[in-house]
């Protein structure tokens, strides 16, 4: 197996698009090395992106935040403005694995690994995050939900590299939250999860909302009906019930070693309800 750590993006794209055999990008490696070890993949070439220019930076831009694809999740929590604007995205990213994993794993890797249970993805989708893609065809921007096409499958072409994840600026009185269910307190993969992002209008009525669910379908599910259930409300009980019901209806999970269809469906609703309440409280406390 060949290992390359290019220092220019052009070189990285050339390596990946010119590769014969199986070539993989390496960010934190917390998925890639596990899959190599389990003999699920046997790469001929691994291209480490961590030495590319700017890849390890979190930048504040006019549009919002740009998080380099090599930034380990541990660094997200240390970036105070990001944490203030998008606490739900940061907490989702920081649920991934242990402190050891946090030191390596990236949200770009979490996204591109395309696991239905990826923790940061529902929060990113709820947050209308975009992926910046550089590749043989140039540079483009794509909503994160457009990247994932199925379990382990993405819409990225040969030589495409996600160079950053972008999060927009926050209107006032906005909040987001992410919750997942795991059997232990740490170190598990989500059995089901929910990300909620919302903005309040006058008198703290929900003006705008996005609700996304994880691990309940082949890909992350955006549930507009659940969002509509809480828009125009102050999260009264019946609104929350409608939100939970809409979430349950949007689930099409499987039975597996981590959970049953019934459990995932029911608990996804519970989590969405709880996450909405947290997001709402966060929005209310903001000016």
């Amino acid at each position: 197996m060949r290992y390359e750590a290019p220092t220019s993006t052009r070189e990285a794209i050339a390596l990946m698009s010119g590769a014969k055999g199986d070539a993989y990008l390496l960010a934190g490696g917390t998925d890639l090395l596990v899959r190599m070890r389990g003999e699920f993949i046997d790469p001929d070439l691994v291209v480490d992106i961590k030495r590319l220019p700017g890849i390890q930076e979190i930048r504040k831009t006019a549009r919002g935040f740009s998080i380099g694809a090599g930034v380990p999740c541990a660094a997200l929590g240390r970036h105070k403005p990001l944490l203030r604007a998008w606490p739900g995205v940061v907490e989702a990213a920081q649920l991934i694995g242990s402190d050891q994993i946090q030191g390596r794993c990236t949200i770009a890797g979490n996204l591109c690994n395309a696991s239905p249970a990826a923790d940061s993805v529902p929060a990113l989708v709820a947050a209308t995050a975009k992926a910046v893609i550089v590749g043989p065809g140039g540079r483009r921007r794509l909503a994160v939900e457009k990247i994932i096409t199925g379990p382990g499958a993405t819409s990225l072409g040969k030589g495409d590299i996600v160079s950053a994840i972008e999060l927009p600026n926050r209107p006032p009185k906005s909040g987001d939250a992410y919750l997942r269910f795991i059997p232990r307190t740490e170190m598990d993969i989500a059995v089901c999860s929910a990300g909620v992002s919302l903005t309040l209008g006058p008198r703290n009525v929900v003006k705008q909302a996005r609700v996304a669910l994880g691990a309940v379908a082949p890909t992350v599910v955006l549930v507009p009906k659940a969002a509509r259930a809480i828009v125009g409300t102050r999260l009264e009980d019946d609104a929350l019930q409608r939100l939970a019901a809409a979430c349950e209806a949007a689930c099409s999970p499987i039975d597996d070693k981590r959970g049953t269809v019934e459990f995932r469906t029911e608990v996804a609703g519970v989590l969405a309800r709880r996450a909405a309440v947290i997001a709402y409280e966060r929005a209310r406390k903001k000016r």
Partner: peptide
């Protein structure tokens, strides 16, 4: 567990070549 550039990591999930 080891420290890599001051960051706690699992050395089983770091390639030897990355240590350069």
């Amino acid at each position: 567990s080891v420290m890599l550039d001051g960051q706690l990591v699992c050395s089983c999930l770091v390639l030897g070549a990355e240590a350069e």
